[in-house]
Design a protein around this nucleic acid. Structure first.
Lengths: 357, 357
DNA sequence: AAGTTTTTGAGGTACGCACCTCAAAATGAG
DNA sequence: CTCATTTTGAGGTGCGTACCTCAAAAACTT
């Protein structure tokens, strides 16, 4: 029986530098555990006065909820949905691959991630798909979609249903950092511009800029950033108006051919869209001629190979793995009513060349 | 009493796509929970035959230990130590800052990270410090230190004491990816070389290479990578022998002055060490003259400012935040006898210019 | 003051696992 | 076959939180 007592105090003595628990908090606040639970989890039926008292005690004793125990008790990790366009380019495939990989890796952490496809060309249908996502199937949604009124509304209603949301890769206008995971596309365009200019060096001539469509915010921003660098700092270059491919290979080839026919002094090619395959192929054929400097966005099998083969000179990338993880961390923080460390969640604008792949 | 039954089956029916628990595993393997525990946690006193049976059942039913519940039950998160040099440059300060930040942010996840300083110039004392780290104070150690026999032995003994180890930033010869977190310095040197060459363009001349010491593996590797690019691909450049600063500002100024006096055709400066302040200051004064292209390593307040001011043309960086997180994930995986996804833990060689800071 | 409503407390169960003890069973040695 | 040893089972406790119920207390109403 003496043994029993010894066992109680674990190994060595009562040294207790432990983190305060809910029980400690209850004592400190002079309320019961039930009330602590109500306050911590934002349930109703607590007087403001009591809420304040609890919050005061939280800071006073430095209470911090044990997330490990919390998720265990909640007995329902988190279920997050990644909403992505149905029709996709190579970059989308990469993203999707990373989402599934993450899902695999985080099963042990009780986090589920599913992929939801939407028709990005039909905002109405897309919004309808979104409206079907219920809060007892998803705790949060990360969405990659162009910014349209329908989608914005759908997201708004989703939030009202209690589903947390965050935009990734494609911004949704909400400028606060807790709602968007991705790069600053103006800066990305500027980075592309600077590299282009520096790689071109002393030569002069025109620069071709290619995009899928200039309807999208991303392209607009990249172009803006690009011009911000090229126009003032380098008079020897002339950046031509953006050519739009609308995602069609044939059209891409056509506009490129026409452009090169019309402008004999093209020295640079800036591919803003994420589908670079066709344009790269076009550039590859030209490469014999001389030094066409080519810069593109997003690492995919094609762009990676082009970089290795020297068809591409530089690649501006945003790490899909980081994006996925960051989106999940952001959603989780929102679910737990926390803030994230903005510094930790910032997605870098990566510059890739053959040597640092 | 009828209510009771209803309560038992939670909300809606017995729909059970749940993850198998230890209980399920016990049933599947035809053994008791106690045995499962023995096998899972590598305790002794189990016949090989039984171990095999359990492992077979694990694969068969796809059991995966619930880490959340495990860490809660273990009632002792993880205590990791980051061993870093006592005397440090700016980059070290940045690293240390990130370690403390991580410590703050992960308290709720029950992960503690402490910083342990060692005297990197006295391998004997350093090893002694390491030998003092006990396994009931640390579950794992991440170490940033030059590779010496003493340290290697100390690490070895540490592992025997049951402390997991991983090297970060400075490699420790163990080539397997699970033991090192940091960049490939050969590739980093090559990246610097390529950027240097491309930024220089058509000019020709000598390139100055500066290091703290060529004793260190990192510098050797960076230099190797640098030469691998410069020598074969660009005959117009001549990379001079590495100058060593040994960390002394005065000496840095001196060697730089002498070098510029001896070689009138210097067009590039490659700063390999992480303490770039003095060299940058030197380059800043020269900048009026013309186009000295300068490339350095590691983002610090100084290098960042130099990049903004255009004194530095490019910066090769390894993200300290990622390094810290990756080191912790790696250590944790080792503690839990798991493997990490190598792809997820690879530290990128980042290229920074003014536009993508 | 009596009734109504709101707020609080007490107590329980569960989550999945770690870690412990003791006895029972299986195995091996002689 | 017996005895010693190794291996296994049964059962319990606790981690810190979520979530639930029911009754008691406090706060408002009229």
């Amino acid at each position: 029986m003496v043994e029993d007592k010894i066992r109680k105090t674990k190994r060595f003595g009562p040294k207790k530098p432990m983190r305060p628990t809910t029980k400690d908090l209850a004592k400190a606040a002079g309320v019961s555990l039930a009330t602590i639970d109500r306050v911590l989890n934002g349930r109703s039926g607590v007087r403001q006065k009591t809420v304040d008292a609890v919050n005061e005690a939280i800071v006073r004793i430095g209470f911090e909820r044990n997330q490990v125990a919390a998720t265990l008790a909640r007995q329902k990790g988190y279920r997050f949905g990644f909403v992505v366009p149905r029709s996709g380019d190579e970059f989308l495939d990469v993203i999707v691959k990373h989402i599934s990989e993450f899902d695999q890796a985080s099963r042990a952490e009780m986090i589920q991630t599913k992929i939801v496809r939407i028709d990005e060309h039909d905002p109405h249908r897309a919004a309808k798909t979104l409206s079907r996502l219920s809060s007892d199937e998803y705790d949060g949604i990360a969405i990659m979609a162009p910014e349209t009124p329908q989608i914005r509304d759908a997201l708004h209603r989703m939030r009202e249903r209690g589903i947390q949301t965050v935009a990734f890769i494609s911004n949704q206008q909400e400028e606060d950092s807790q709602s968007f995971v991705g790069i600053d596309n103006i800066a990305a365009g500027a980075t592309a511009g600077r590299l282009m200019a520096r790689f071109l060096g002393q030569t002069s001539g025109s620069i071709l800029v290619l995009a899928e469509t200039m309807q999208s915010r991303d392209s607009l921003e990249r172009r803006l950033g690009f011009d911000q660098v090229i126009s003032p700092d380098y008079q020897q270059f002339h950046a031509l108006p953006t050519l739009e491919t609308h995602g069609y290979p044939d059209r891409t080839n056509l506009v490129l051919k026409n452009a090169f026919a019309a402008h004999k002094d093209i020295v640079g090619l800036y591919i803003m869209g994420s589908e670079a395959r066709v344009a790269i192929e076009f550039a590859r054929k030209l490469h014999g001629d001389g030094k066409l400097i080519t810069v593109a966005h997003e690492r995919t099998p094609s762009t990676e190979q082009a970089l290795r083969e020297n068809t591409l000179d530089a690649l501006i990338n945003q790490d899909p793995g980081h994006i996925v993880r960051s989106a999940v961390r952001t959603l989780r923080a929102k679910c737990e009513n926390r803030e994230t460390l903005a510094s930790q969640e910032r997605i870098r604008i990566e510059i890739l060349i053959a040597e640092n792949l």
